[in-house]
């Protein structure tokens, strides 16, 4: 067997395992984090610190019956959860975990991730539409308009980044940030608004992944469970895993673009550990945010996007263009 085939298989298994394990253990982290923020203990019965809880939950989900309610669109109803999970896993292909630990070092990696990220919306739309449930349809409509609103400032910010980096290759972007003063979040020579750009990117990725405080699609006090109201068993499980995988992708991108990816802040020991540390810190922030704030109202979310994020990111784009031209 040639080494290329082994490499492909190894990365395929690795990525799926990483995505699935992350989804499982982020649920654990979320539950633990939420519990301690709320001054509870959280899962603690299954295994030490409840560490086996995600496994047990997974087994439970898998053994449940997949219920297909009457009146649903049988094909789309089954397809939607898969569509939620597959693009998320695909996006992992170009994420550089370290200088060498990357499945495919594509020179349009950034573009590819955004292409796949957009498919996620389709999954929510299909899931909500096919469920033949009023809550699900409302939720799907909300998710779609939310994503359209948030794709714009996010992409403007990314365009700004691409103007500065001059490449779409994620590994090269990381290579340009060898130490903390060179991280793009602090690269004031490119634009004085870089921390703001990071913030915009982060807020948009929260909204893109339907995370609180932008989880309008799953607003349980209004829409019960939103687009996955009718899903049971692994249908629900895949939506759930897809959501967490998307969070990992969003945070990975933020780490790669702004926080120096696998680079050491002091330029000493770059490697995958730095990437993971930064990634999980960001993910913890996502969890922290969820358990602090109430949910935004729908027009509040759109107002934020159209009135604040888009003008600011446009301004940043112009400013960066000016800086690049002048300096």
């Amino acid at each position: 067997m040639d080494s290329e085939l082994i490499r492909v298989i190894a990365f395929l298994v690795g990525i799926i395992a990483f995505a699935a394990l992350n989804a499982a253990y982020l649920v654990w982290l979320e539950r633990k984090g939420a519990a301690h923020i709320q001054r509870r203990i959280g899962p603690k019965e299954v295994g030490p610190f409840g560490l086996l809880q995600p496994m047990v939950d997974g087994i439970k989900l898998m053994t449940k019956q997949i219920l297909i309610p009457d009146g649903v669109d049988p094909v789309l109803f089954r397809l939607a959860p898969i569509l939620a999970m597959v693009p998320a896993i695909m996006s992992f292909v170009t994420i550089p975990f370290s200088e060498t630990l990357v499945a495919r070092n594509i020179n349009v990696g950034l573009l590819m991730i955004f292409a796949f990220a957009s498919v996620n919306v389709l999954a929510l739309l299909l899931g909500g539409w096919a469920s033949n449930n009023k809550y699900a349809v409302i939720s799907a409509a909300r998710a779609v308009s939310q994503n359209i609103a948030y794709e714009i400032p996010m992409l403007i910010t990314v365009i700004t980044m691409v103007m500065i980096t001059g490449t779409l290759n994620l590994n090269e972007i990381v290579a340009q940030q060898p130490n903390i003063s060179q991280w793009y979040i602090f690269r004031f020579s490119a634009s004085p608004l870089m921390p703001v750009a990071f913030l915009i990117f982060f807020i948009c990725s929260l909204a893109e992944t339907n995370r609180a405080p932008f989880d309008l699609g799953e607003a349980e006090s209004e829409l019960v469970a939103g687009f996955h109201t009718e899903y049971s068993s692994m249908g629900f499980g895949l939506f759930f895993m897809g959501e967490y995988a998307n969070i990992v992708i969003g945070c990975s991108l933020a780490v790669v673009l702004f926080l120096g990816g696998w680079q050491d802040p002091f330029g000493l020991y770059p490697g995958v550990w730095w990437f993971l540390l930064k990634l999980y810190l960001l993910i913890f922030t996502v969890i922290w945010i969820r358990w602090t704030f109430p949910r935004t109202q729908f027009y509040g979310l759109l107002n934020l996007s159209w009135k604040i994020l888009i003008p600011v990111s446009m301004f940043n784009l112009l400013l960066t263009a000016g800086f690049l031209k002048v300096f």
Binding site: R39, R40, I41, T292, I308
Partner: peptide, 28 residues
């Protein structure tokens, strides 16, 4: 409004992280 709003969010987050470091209050 942007700044006061953003500040209120930061205050909220500082409260929850402070609560996180306090001991649990539930009874097992």
């Amino acid at each position: 409004e942007i700044f006061t709003g953003f500040w209120s969010l930061l205050v909220g987050m500082s409260i929850t992280i402070r609560e996180m470091t306090k001991p649990v209050v539930t009874e097992q």
